[in-house]
Design a protein around this nucleic acid. Structure first.
Lengths: 207, 207, 207, 207
DNA sequence: CATGAATGAGAATTCATTCAT
DNA sequence: TATGAATGAATTCTCATTCAT
């Protein structure tokens, strides 16, 4: 008697959520938070303004989720790398390069990290995300210090430095409107950034 | 027919310009770009809204100049440090610590660097400023590499990393509304950040 | 050096505030709170939407002030009547008739009293206003009871009844869109309402 | 070709209509017209939004019917009281107290009477309902006047006063969100309101 | 017949910029 | 020349109503 939602419809719905997030991400990458008005997002996904509000109760929530999910995913990937066996320096290098390579590929959160959102709520999330991000690096640093791979240092400070270093070094190439085709220079850049981060941690030369 | 500006008047005018920039800076430090509306700036300097437009043709221009002048000043200070004689590592350390100490003291630019301004024009300036900022560090890095104090590396990349590292490491303590009294932890933090940056450059341990 | 606001300008400003309030009152009388959108008010006064916000920080504040000022004025008039010497019944009659006559004349608050505003803040004010209004009547009732002009009764309850009685009895003639010409029937209606209120207080017949 | 509605189906349909009205009433009692969106009503009855439109062509019609039916019921109850034999004053008192007691008990119409609905169509109905409501009281007043229980007076005016009196006196305790438990003070309040209304009609003291 | 996703027309509010005085 | 009142476009969010499935 009651109509069941067709599988096709269900797909459409889940799809819409994802498409909205994707559209928002694209817009941010293209022109910053500033360009990502609800109207623009709606236009980008091809939905009405009202439809956005069926999926997200407010603009703030949409962007908070955007940031959170991107960071969660990124952190999971990095954590997996860091949980591997082997020397801390190798894992740190692998983690930084993995992030850098993905960052250089497409619209991503490196830029969102730099942006000051209009909204206090989103801003608070951004700070939490950075902290979460740094925590992953802190782990491997701490381990490296314990094993005498890295000299004594406050891991939290170095972690922040590393996050800042590669975010910053990535931002220019990733910056909005610089949609130049990605090339083989990227691999080299990723390696160089990783080199700098390893040195920042105090890894032995050539690690 | 045309009025000659008396020297006194010229002074007044120059004064107002400076006061407007100062007021804008104060407001940004207090609550971010968000709080720095033209009306708020006018209130802060004790001028009328219209008067602001006598000194700056638009809000964008005002903020572009604000950023530019602040960065110019900061760069001049750093440049002076870097132009001193002595080992590159010592000068790099001095530069980073100088910046960090000033940043930790009060309303400053570190946050504005991270902030996405409302305006595209300002955004472009922000990127230029970062580049200019990095260029200063690039010099000392290049010199250190030439003198074999630092290993071979692309100086531009490491410079970006260093700027990112200390900006990021400073952002949390410097974030707006965190007008908590700065304490002695600051000196230690500045030192640790400098340590990390020196290592990132590949300076010999203990440099 | 600084331009003084010309007296003409000052008048315009004070005028605008008053004109906005008047326009809002007119619209409410014409079609209820529902018709009194900020856009409609702006249109009615011949100002832009933004201009309204120069005079009132929010719609809620505008309507709160509208209600408050109308009630304050009304209460002052009634209080003056009630403070006269003479029998309580005569003063009660005079007060009710005074209110009724003014209510019947033009767009007034009788209707606003009945209206449920969209806004919680305004709603709260409406309740306070009614209470304030009732308090005036409570005084004269209390006095009449003390002097044995009226029988023993809870003055607050009777006051509410009296306010309700004449509000209700007035609402139909005053209701929106009933812009029929006011005639001599009004005087009779006012008298009859006063009669009913006096009886409700328990005044001796013919008082 | 055309489907015949089975009796069982008809029952279901009639049932849904009633349930929708009931749900709307509940929501209004809980948070005023403001809270009674179509979506909220649908959620409350456990039907879809679209289903509501199968039973009512528009929101306005739904609320018009809600008001009408509730008032019809209320009027029927009062009419039954008034049609009893005995002195007019006793019947008037009984009617007022009956209304007041029901009003004080639970989610009811007293507040909706005061409320300005969102819709012009509903507003018109509200006025008609009040008139209908007043008509019932008018009858008993007229009878009492004819029998010399009450002094000469325009019954319609006094009826309006009485309706207003007890509505107003009830509004504060009945206002939405004041779902505090009703206590024994209620019985006293109902009696006092009835006293005031009887006096307003001019009933002999102690009637 | 039922569903609820989608629409789209407002509503309030903000703010850079202009211009009459 | 200085002022700040006025403008109006842009932004977020709401909700009655429609219609493809």
């Amino acid at each position: 008697m009651a109509y069941r939602r067709s599988p096709l419809m269900q797909e459409r719905l889940a799809d819409n959520r994802a498409r909205i997030l994707r559209a928002a991400r694209t817009l941010i990458a293209r022109g910053g938070f500033r360009e990502a008005s609800i109207a623009a997002v709606a236009r980008e996904v091809g939905l009405s303004i009202g439809a956005i509000y069926r999926y997200f109760p407010s603009k703030a929530v949409l962007f908070v989720e955007l940031l959170t999910s991107a960071v969660d995913h990124e952190c999971a990937v990095l954590q997996a790398i860091i949980d591997q066996p082997g020397p801390a320096s190798a894992r740190l290098r692998a983690a930084v390069m993995s992030f850098a390579e993905r960052a250089l590929k497409g619209p991503n959160l490196a830029y969102a990290f730099m942006a000051e959102p209009t909204d206090t709520e989103v801003e608070a999330t951004r700070i939490l995300c950075k902290r979460q991000f740094g925590a992953v690096f802190e782990q491997v640093l701490r381990e490296g210090i314990r094993r005498r791979e890295f000299p004594a240092q406050r891991a939290a400070v170095t972690a922040a430095c590393i996050v800042g270093a590669f975010t910053e070094a990535l931002v220019r190439p990733v910056a909005p409107r610089t949609s130049s085709p990605r090339n083989r220079g990227d691999a080299r850049l990723a390696r160089e950034i990783a080199d700098a981060c390893l040195r920042a941690a105090g890894a032995a030369a050539g690690a």
